[in-house]
Design a protein around this nucleic acid. Structure first.
Lengths: 142, 142
DNA sequence: TGGTATTCAATCGCTCACGATTAAATCGCA
DNA sequence: TGCGATTTAATCGTGAGCGATTGAATACCA
């Protein structure tokens, strides 16, 4: 007997991530962002001018995913990409005024998500920490 | 200030799911399965002959994702698809002998994953339940 | 200094996910 | 009985994610 789908933590993560993205998607769409684009923006609002590699490390993605993602974001006027002067191998990603301006508009999102989670913020934070700890163990195993 | 990427439970889910799939992928590849295909197989091993709609509900996916997925699985000889005689709208998905036979080969996987999680099974189960509860609340909110 | 190794981003091909739409079968009800 | 509403898969186009590879810039070192 193989285990049941609902019994598996891999499916719990798969379907919870799915559900989370489905809550975010319609809210982000109003700002013209997809979910992965939102994650990139979060990272850039934190530290503007990161390289493609920096962003990849922050998101856990390789250039084969990040580069096309950033190209679409550049086409939408969210970021600008340019080779680093000191090291021409690296590409720096800078927020445009529009991209920077979106930060104010995502402010109300946080409350929506907390509401959707249906549990007190402290409990969310505790669950987040345990999920993060699991992730780090899985990364180490890989 | 927008919150930091590591502070957000959405990113915890995103990156933990990513890490889990990355542990599974090389193991499943030896069996000729992708991760979503593995989830389909788990569901079919549990109940053979489900319809496309049944599988979609089990996985939380629509036919626009499930149909091509099943077509690829059919091309690989894992399943057979056929219209239901009593209701021609529905398509029933049956395991082939090969597909059924794979169940034995995934047996050792469970131990690998528990190992990779780096925590006792009881703790995994508890975390799984909390993630599942979060997912169900998010689904209700959407 | 010259030549090799490494780093970094990009490209290609494939799978998956999803919004929107379509076509066919079935249902329900006047 | 027949016709409109609903259900069910399938299709299409786009964005992500990833294994494998490539090409250019830099680092390293004999």
């Amino acid at each position: 007997m193989s285990p049941t789908l609902p019994d598996m933590i891999c499916f719990a993560l798969y379907s919870a991530n799915q559900a989370m993205q489905r809550v975010y998607a319609p809210l982000l769409q109003k700002l013209g962002l997809t979910y992965p684009q939102y994650l990139v923006m979060l990272s850039l609002w934190q530290a503007d001018g990161q390289t493609v590699g920096d962003l990849g490390r922050a998101l856990g993605l390789e250039s084969n995913t990040v580069t096309p993602l950033l190209k679409r974001m550049e086409a939408q006027g969210l970021v600008a990409r340019s080779r680093d002067g000191a090291d021409e191998r690296q590409v720096r990603v800078a927020l445009t005024d529009h991209g920077r301006g979106l930060q104010d508009q995502v402010q109300p999102l946080t409350a929506c998500i907390i509401e959707a989670c249906g549990m007190p913020p402290a409990e969310i934070a505790e669950l987040r920490d345990r999920i993060t700890a699991l992730r780090d163990r899985l990364r180490q195993a890989g």
